[in-house]
């Protein structure tokens, strides 16, 4: 759609995208589609930051004599093959699982921003070069790319984070590139250029605000995906090292006991689903909101 806005720097109305997110009239409050996932994410964040608040026990404390205990008042989620409390482990596991997801997204976004901005703002040659690199990276399924990185760097939490981050970067880069391009060609940017504004000013004032909102939403969606990938890698034994509680690793360890102790796998699995769904729904809701606002 076309939108006019107060122009001080240019004499003519310009078309979208907007120079910065509109501050329209306040819409209705967030509905359950935002409230529920937001609550879940908040609880998970608390679990990740201060797990002892929710589960004061030691996630590594073993009690082999009490292995495979079913869920009870004492052990809400039961115990695992070494008698460790599954609830405590799942809660403490939020830190590894969520921080891998979050940090990986930050790495992906950061790298995507860099590559996307280079391609979008740079010369034709730079754009061409970056695009070819992105195409090559796109040719690999993300998880495969992550496996490749781990093969080269070796397993571990840090490399898993890095691997997932690197493998998501191309997606962000492409989105950012197209946003930057659109903004670059807009009239108000041309106007700014004409006014002799510095490149930095234009990026800060016009480009970033336009890119920020969709990027934030995409990243929110990406966190969920990154959590799932990180868990997958840990499931394969490439992420967290034993005895660290990590959802994917717990899932993998408990899988063999599914027939006699379903709780060892169910709860970490549930938390992966819950966290991935919550962040994804939240992302979609925000996306919706943004659309409505614009």
């Amino acid at each position: 759609m076309t939108q006019t806005f107060p122009v001080t720097e240019a004499s003519a109305p310009v078309t979208s995208p907007t120079p910065h997110p509109p501050r329209g009239p306040r819409r209705r409050r967030f509905g359950p589609a935002v409230a529920i996932p937001a609550t879940v994410v908040t609880v998970l964040a608390v679990a990740a930051i201060a797990p002892a608040l929710l589960a004061p026990g030691d996630p590594l404390a073993m009690e082999p004599a009490n292995a495979f205990a079913a869920p009870s008042l004492q052990h809400w989620f039961g115990t695992d093959e070494s008698g460790r409390d599954v609830f405590t482990r799942v809660i403490h596991g939020s830190r590894d699982s969520l921080s891998i997801g979050l940090l990986a997204t930050v790495i992906g976004v950061g790298l995507g921003l860099l590559l996307g901005a280079m391609a979008g703002w740079g010369s034709r040659a730079v754009d061409f070069g970056v695009n070819r690199v992105l195409e090559v990276l796109f040719a690999f399924p993300n998880l495969l790319l992550a496996l490749l990185v781990i093969t080269i760097l070796g397993p571990g939490v840090v490399t898993t984070t890095l691997a997932v981050g690197l493998s998501t970067a191309p997606g962000y880069a492409r989105m950012i590139r197209s946003q930057v391009r659109a903004v670059k060609q807009s009239g108000y940017v041309e106007a700014s250029i004409v006014q002799g504004r510095s490149r930095w000013f234009i990026i800060r004032r016009h480009v970033l605000p336009n890119v920020a909102a969709p990027l934030f939403i995409l990243a929110t969606l990406g966190v969920g995906q990154a959590i799932v990938w990180a868990s997958s890698l840990s499931f394969l034994g490439l992420g967290a090292t034993p005895p660290a509680p990590e959802w994917g690793a717990m899932l993998s360890a408990g899988r063999g006991y599914m027939s006699i102790a379903w709780w060892i796998t169910l709860f970490p699995g549930l938390f992966i689903v819950l966290s991935a769904t919550a962040t994804t729904v939240l992302g979609h809701s925000l996306q919706q909101k943004l659309k409505e606002m614009s």
């Binding site: 073993m62 070494s82 397993p155 090292t241 034993p242 005895p243």
Partner: peptide, 23 residues
């Protein structure tokens, strides 16, 4: 199984012995 090694790791820790598991 690695779960056995994890138990050994925990009991070794109790006497101040660090056991690392390299998969």
């Amino acid at each position: 199984p690695v779960s056995v090694l994890e138990q050994f790791q925990a009991s070794a820790k109790a006497v101040g012995f660090e056991l690392l598991i390299s998969q």
